[in-house]
């Protein structure tokens, strides 16, 4: 085979391969919309994080604005300390409310941020003061039974 045709085919092969890697990272992995580079850290204490995991999304009004980067148990307050990385484009007021929610019935858990009305904004390293724990099914059933028993007593 001619040398130049072979070079052409190999060139095509390499271009196809790099193209496939690009498609994988941009279209499948969605590298284009979320980068770790420019983000700031927030910390929140939760009484119960349920099934929240590191790398879970942080959403506000359903839009992904960041990721959970670290979960620790604090021996000072005996609760979970969750570190969030929020994209620099999104800044939130000081009185923002963070709650652990579930996507769908069997979906993964994520952190929802509800913006408050404060003029001062959260900065890197700040702590989110108002948090809402994950809903634990057993606790909910327990409360329901307790209420039911109280209702029955009234009758």
């Amino acid at each position: 085979m001619q040398r130049s045709t072979m070079d052409l085919w190999v060139g095509l092969f390499v271009i196809l391969g790099i193209g496939a890697l690009l498609i994988l990272s941009l279209k499948v992995g969605n590298l284009s919309t979320y980068s770790r580079g420019d983000s700031y850290q927030l910390v929140g204490n939760f009484e119960n994080i349920g099934g929240l995991k590191v790398r879970a999304p942080v959403k506000s009004s359903g839009v992904v604005v960041g990721r959970v980067t670290d979960i620790q148990f604090s021996l000072e307050s005996y609760d979970a300390v969750v570190t969030l990385n929020v994209d620099n484009r999104y800044i939130f007021p000081k009185d923002t409310f963070a709650s652990i929610l579930t996507a769908g019935l069997l979906g993964e858990q994520y952190i929802g941020l509800d913006a408050g009305g404060d003029d001062a904004m959260l900065e890197s390293g700040d702590k989110i003061m108002q948090t809402n724990s994950a809903v634990v099914l057993e606790e909910m059933i327990g409360r329901f039974l307790f209420d039911k028993a109280a209702d029955d007593d009234d009758l």
Binding site: L21, L24, S25, K27, V28, G29, N30, T33, P57, V64
Partner: peptide, 19 residues
């Protein structure tokens, strides 16, 4: 189909490791 795929496939964790 695409959005579920994109939100669950991580560049570093999945694609780089596969590579």
């Amino acid at each position: 189909f695409w959005s579920q795929m994109q939100s669950n496939v991580d560049f570093h964790y999945d694609i780089v490791n596969g590579f």
